[in-house]
Amino acid sequence: MPLCLSQDTDADALLDRDPFALLVGMLLDQQFPMERAFAGPALLAQRLGRTELDARELASYDPDALVEIFRGPPAVHRYPGSMAGRVQALAAAVVDQYDGDVTLIWRDVEDGRELFRRLNALPGFGTQKAQIFTALLGKQRGVTPAGWREAAGGYGQEGSYRSVADVVDAASLGRVREYKQAQKAAAKAGSKAAAPAKG
């Protein structure tokens, strides 16, 4: 099934055929609407005059020029300066550690824990992002090493609607958004309950 993460046909087509663009989209999915984050790689490729993203090109790109590309308008991300730097660091890691071939991160990986470990070691990827991308690879890209669901934590659960890993159409995007809003509301209520009483 083709990816449907940005809800834009052309942007999703890039994510579908270019695994590095998909990794960049996951990196951009932070403090920014999910669809716009995953549309970011297509916007970046368009401004670079490319049909796909190249890790080597981005790793060696002039940092100041890359920030300007991120600024737009429209901006590739809400924080164009810091995210341009993060994308460049991610590209450099893919070049240095995987010879510019992002699929080497998961191709022939021994098990889900190793896949998670490799993703978690990437610049800009913490535990949660690495778990979500592990789930996305397993649920929508056919990357299913032994123990991948466990390595993805709750995001690996079948039939859940917790993250971008579960977005396959507009309806599932709505369910994921509802879940996230409920989580935020619960966290807010919890922090208020934990606050000391005034007076």
Results as ranks from 00 to 15, higher is better:
R36E: 11
L22W: 01
A75K: 05
D64E: 12
Y161P: 06
S172W: 01
G190I: 08
L22H: 02
Q128A: 14
P80W: 03
G100A: 04
I105N: 00
T103W: 09
P196C: 08
R50Y: 13
P73S: 15
F20A: 02
M83C: 06
A197V: 14
L173R: 14
F116P: 05
A39R: 08
G174N: 04
G126I: 07
G147C: 07
K192N: 15
A93D: 07
S82H: 12
R107K: 12
G199K: 15
G154S: 11
L58T: 07
S160A: 14
A189L: 11
Q97G: 12
L119C: 03
P145W: 07
F70G: 03
T144E: 12
L53I: 08
M34P: 08
G49S: 09
D10T: 11
E158D: 14
G154K: 09
P73N: 15
R175V: 06
L43Y: 05
I105S: 02
V164W: 06
R113A: 13
A121L: 07
R56I: 12
W148H: 04
W148E: 04
A59W: 09
R47H: 08
S160L: 07
V164P: 01
R50A: 13
L44R: 04
A37V: 03
E35P: 08
G174I: 01
V24G: 00
G142I: 06
L90V: 03
R113D: 13
G147W: 04
Q181S: 13
E158N: 09
L90S: 04
A130W: 00
